[in-house]
Simulated scan of single mutants.
Amino acid sequence: MSLYSKIIGTGSYLPPRRITNHDLAAQLAEKGIETSDEWIVSRSGIAARHFADTGVQSSDLAVEAAKRALDAAGLQPDEIDLIVMATSTPDHFGGFPSTACVVQRKLGITNGCPAFDVQAVCTGFAYAMTIADNFIKAGAHKKVLVIGAEVFSRILNFDDRTTCVLFGDGAGAVVLSASNEPGILATRLHADGRHSEILCVPGKPSGGMLEGSAFLVMDGQAVFKLAVSVLEKVAHEALEIAGMDSSQLDWLVPHQANVRIMQSTAKKLGLPMEKMVVTVDQHGNTSAASIPLALDQAVRDGRIRPGQNVMMEGVGGGFTWGAVLARM
């Protein structure tokens, strides 16, 4: 009998502080930087985002999303036997201890289960899901908590209107369980380090200090061009592995970076826009959190239902991209 991994619970969390484009434009105007709601919406589709308060870290957002996913799955924290967390904004400088271990402690999980972080920026959740899926199919773990959480507001340069208006903070989580029924139907991951400099944080630790900038930098045109070219391809790759075609998809849940990229991908897959889950307008780009945030919203509002086929895909710094095809 074949062993599969299946999503049995989803959860998400947004910090309470909501920042509209008008709020952000007013903040930037005080620094002599001109932008507007119209300018931001026309380029990205983003109308608002959430920022974490001072002192709130990725682990704090992750814990809230994880609690909701565990509740939806009907599980207690100690029933989890693996935690895989995707983040580019870990709690600790240098990335250790891993934020996954911090989340494990904050959830009160004391069963000694392994916990680790995955770094693939905006593709992080697809990477984390693929890792968890393979652990389950190998028989190594039965209940896996997969989380994407970010506080990107901490690495934004608010003197650069081309990047600071695009990102937000948040967390999303799923519980994957071993199952005899098909759940994760296919995954496909890629990376191309030749493009590592088009989206990065260039600073490096040196002598206990930061050498260079700790702010995100991005070549927006280069990222846009690459994203549009790879997302359709990786979706088709996942469909081919599963022996399916795009007409069998009920929902597309893409990384929420730019509504134009998302619309282009849906069009190339032959999907009507009504089959695409869009949260970028209210969340901004929450990097590794964006897919699970959007998935949870669509599950909880009743759009995504059991038995439906969902394509999740992302693209991010590294340069990385990937897709996860799941039957809910």
Rank of each mutant, 00 (worst) to 15 (best):
A69T: 09
A69Q: 01
D71E: 15
D71P: 02
D71I: 03
A72I: 06
A72L: 02
A73C: 04
A73R: 01
L75W: 07
L75P: 03
L75Y: 11
Q76E: 14
Q76H: 11
Q76F: 04
P77V: 06
D78W: 11
E79N: 12
E79S: 13
E79D: 15
I80F: 03
I80N: 03
D81I: 09
D81Q: 10
L82N: 01
L82A: 04
L82D: 07
I83Q: 07
V84C: 08
V84R: 07
V84S: 06
V84L: 05
M85F: 13
M85L: 15
T87Q: 06
S88G: 13
T89K: 10
T89D: 12
P90D: 05
P90K: 05
F93L: 14
G94N: 10
G95T: 06
G95Q: 04
G95L: 04
F96Y: 15
F96D: 13
F96W: 13
F96L: 15
P97Q: 07
S98G: 05
T99Y: 01
T99M: 03
T99F: 03
A100Y: 09
A100C: 12
A100D: 10
C101T: 14
C101P: 09
C101L: 13
V102A: 08
V102I: 15
V102M: 04
Q104R: 14
K106A: 10
K106N: 15
K106P: 01
L107W: 10
G108F: 02
G108A: 04
G108W: 08
I109S: 01
T110R: 14
N111L: 09
G112T: 10
G112I: 11
C113E: 08
P114V: 05
A115E: 06
A115I: 07
F116H: 04
D117E: 02
D117Y: 01
V118K: 07
Q119S: 14
Q119V: 15
A120N: 02
A120H: 05
V121D: 05
C122K: 00
C122G: 04
T123R: 00
T123A: 13
